[in-house]
């Protein structure tokens, strides 16, 4: 039951993801360079945050043409799972593996701060350790996180929404202008999740614990 963390030139959250998984008990986890495409024995591929290929052209636009990324559809067909965090989420929408688009934040600026999220769907392999409606704190750090579906129906695909401390989904608690405060979504197969918040950065008692249940869900459902 291997986990692999994709590394593209410009990826910068690969080490954070490795730390979070190992710290929470996932032993067989390592990096995979973007020029490799052999995912034999891998159950979960993580597309971590960063600025792959400098985000030149468009976020994620170059990474999706790599050998590794092109192996994803067959990997999913063979039962694999993918989670894209931040830049990884941008790759997944860019490649149309997840519906919708990620546009620039309405402020046009990079936003780095803690946000409160409401768990909208706990019937996914990535969130089953939460209860529906749970509130969790995670950091965001992005310029391009304004999720916009453009006519596609995504109601059932929403996993996390930005909300205020009381769990209310409000305009004020939406950091980047995303459609209906969407922070994370999953595809129809339930195998591919993308989210802007960095759950890997809140995975120990000193940094915060908001992301630990995502990792526990992965252990329980994907690596069992």
């Amino acid at each position: 039951m291997k986990v692999r963390i994709a590394v593209f030139p410009g990826t910068n959250c690969d080490r954070d993801a490795l730390y979070a998984l190992k710290h929470n008990g996932i032993k067989n986890t390592d990096y995979i360079w973007y020029r490799k495409s052999d995912l034999t024995g891998v159950r979960l591929l993580i597309l971590p945050g960063g600025f792959s290929f400098g985000d030149y052209l468009r976020t994620g636009a170059i990474a999706i043409h790599s050998e590794l990324f092109r192996a994803i559809p067959a990997f999913i067909r063979n039962g694999g799972y993918v989670v894209g965090i931040c830049n990884g989420f941008q790759m997944l929408t860019e490649a149309k593996l997840l519906p919708g688009f990620l546009l620039k934040n309405t402020s046009k600026k990079f936003i780095s701060r803690m946000v409160t999220l409401r768990v909208e769907n706990n019937e996914t392999p990535f969130t089953s350790c939460f209860r529906k409606g749970d509130l969790v704190e995670m950091p965001i750090a992005h310029t391009t996180g304004n999720y916009t579906p453009l006519g596609e129906t995504v109601g059932n695909n929403v996993v996390f929404r930005y909300c205020d401390k009381n769990g209310e989904v409000t305009v004020k608690s939406n950091p980047n202008g995303s459609f209906q405060n969407i922070a994370g979504i999953i595809d129809d197969t339930g195998h591919i999740m993308g989210l802007m918040p960095h759950f890997e950065r809140v995975s120990d008692e000193f940094l915060g614990t908001g992301g630990i249940k995502v990792i526990r869900s992965i252990i329980k459902n994907i690596l069992k």
């Binding site: 954070d16 979070a20 990079f110 780095s112 950091p139 750090a141 960095h198 890997e200 950065r201």
Partner: peptide
Amino acid sequence: KHWIYEQYDSRVGCDTL
């Protein structure tokens, strides 16, 4: 000055306490 420092990623690296 949060208008300034919220434009900076202060947590990447998982060591910022």
